[in-house]
């Protein structure tokens, strides 16, 4: 690092350039997580279904997608995305790269969320479902009013963890030409020949966002779920992190 390589950071234009990248990064993360949540929920419930013709495809989806690198999914949609949608949107449809990135990220994230949600549901004591069913509530009612309100609260920390993972994974969309934070950084350092300085700045921005999020999730009240369930959830998370 030479002292003269830092001067450029005084230029507000550079920061605006970083800012544009940051906006892309955050937009990609938020859109991907928001899209993956309902999909993940559906597949979690599918995997827990007692009907084989629902459970098997759901299991196959989750296991297959989780076993693929995110980068592969992103590159696939970057290359093939447009032609995939042409039957629906017409012959000259071009999938914007941003959305190709969103698709790759969402597909992967939905499979991970499905597992987080499934773990959350399975962590609840069985007595909760039994008590609800014994009162005459149907299976969907039991899910909606008894199981999910508790399971989702249990899952907040794991889901926040997944959000930080997604934020970091968005850096992969640079490969298909989306100008996220890291990609913008690359553009800057190839012009100014100061990769170390630029990457230090980029790393700091990623760190600040993810650190704030993880602190936030730690403070979020888990809500009034049973202590036993909280403990089991923590164990599951530790196991996931170890794996």
């Amino acid at each position: 690092m030479r002292p003269d390589t830092w001067g450029m950071f005084a230029d507000p234009a550079i920061w605006r350039f970083f800012g544009d990248g940051l906006v892309q990064t955050l937009a990609l993360s938020v859109v991907s997580v928001v899209l993956s949540f309902p999909v993940g929920l559906a597949f979690a419930l599918g995997r827990l279904s007692s009907r084989r013709w629902i459970r098997w495809p759901a299991t196959a989806y989750v296991e297959a997608i989780r076993a693929l690198p995110v980068l592969l999914l992103i590159v696939y949609f970057g290359i093939k995305g447009s032609s995939l949608f042409r039957p629906i949107f017409g012959a000259d449809f071009e999938l914007p790269r941003f959305w190709a990135g969103v698709l790759g990220l969402s597909l992967y994230t939905s499979a991970v969320l499905a597992e987080i949600i499934r773990a959350g549901i399975l962590t609840l004591p069985r007595g909760q479902t039994e008590a609800s069913r014994a009162l005459g509530l149907s299976y969907p009612q039991t899910m909606r009013f008894v199981v999910l309100p508790q399971a989702l609260r249990l899952m907040v920390p794991a889901m926040m963890g997944q959000l930080t993972t997604v934020i970091k994974d968005t850096s992969l969309v640079g490969t298909i030409g989306v100008f996220d934070l890291l990609r913008q950084g690359r553009t800057i350092y190839t012009q100014f020949f100061n990769p170390i300085e630029v990457l230090l700045i980029v790393a700091t921005i990623y760190f600040v966002i993810c650190f704030v999020l993880s602190q936030l999730s730690r403070r979020l009240e888990l809500g009034s779920v049973t202590r036993e369930a909280k403990i089991r959830m923590t164990e599951l998370e530790l196991r996931d992190q170890a794996a």
């Binding site: 008590a131 014994a134 508790q150």
Partner: peptide, 18 residues
């Protein structure tokens, strides 16, 4: 329909904590 007519109380209470 059956369960509407049969109330049950469990050893571990199983109240809904939320």
């Amino acid at each position: 329909r059956l369960r509407k007519r049969v109330g049950m109380v469990f050893q571990s209470f199983n109240l809904f904590p939320h």
